[in-house]
């Protein structure tokens, strides 16, 4: 049951992710990206990480993608489609193929680490355990990340601030 669900979700994820790249209209791309986030949240739930699943939906699908959609909807959709030249297509294909070869070479000998049933804790993804781990073992990285966000926020406010003598409306 879980296996089938995983393969179904994984193929759906790959299909949606592919459609993000293939779609001609940017709005369709964004909508497929949102679907991709949903399927990734499905994976989190299969891994018993409900908190991550919910936060992934709230932050990425609920907030960031809305802003993406916002910007793209304001772009003129009747614009002439940019023609890509043959040279860039050929170079793109070659670069992509090379990257694929490197990936295959790197992952060829890799083994998937299996879990140890003796020490495995299936409740590790629950919000309570996650909070305890975040505020004890990983306190420093957690606080550093929050400082980073604060800095980014201050920067955004500085950029958006009205300068002296400037009038918008």
């Amino acid at each position: 049951m879980t296996d089938n669900l995983f393969f179904f979700l994984a193929s759906l994820t790959l299909l949606c992710a592919l459609m993000v790249v293939v779609s001609k209209s940017p709005v369709h791309s964004v909508l497929f990206l949102i679907l991709t986030f949903f399927t990734i949240s499905g994976h989190y739930i299969l891994l018993n990480a409900q908190f991550l699943a919910a936060v992934n939906i709230i932050v990425y699908a609920g907030a960031i993608m809305v802003l993406f959609l916002f910007v793209i909807m304001f772009l003129n959709q009747n614009e002439e489609r940019v023609k890509t030249s043959v040279v860039s297509k050929v170079t793109g294909t070659i670069a992509g193929g090379l990257l694929f070869v490197v990936l295959v070479a790197a992952l060829k000998d890799a083994t998937v680490r299996t879990y140890d049933p003796a020490t495995f804790n299936s409740q590790i993804g629950m919000v309570e355990n996650l909070g305890k781990v975040l505020f004890s073992d990983y306190l420093l990285p957690f606080e550093l990340a929050s400082v980073l966000f604060l800095v980014a926020m201050v920067g955004a406010v500085m950029l958006g601030k009205k300068e002296a003598g400037e009038k918008h409306f």
Binding site: Q50, F51, A54, I58, A61, G62, L69, V127
Partner: peptide, 22 residues
């Protein structure tokens, strides 16, 4: 009954805008 019920509600509310935008 999920142990993140409130976050679930919040997530669904945050998705509510897509119908209107689309």
């Amino acid at each position: 009954e999920v142990n993140i019920g409130l976050l679930y509600v919040f997530g669904v509310v945050s998705l509510g805008v897509y119908g209107l935008m689309i």
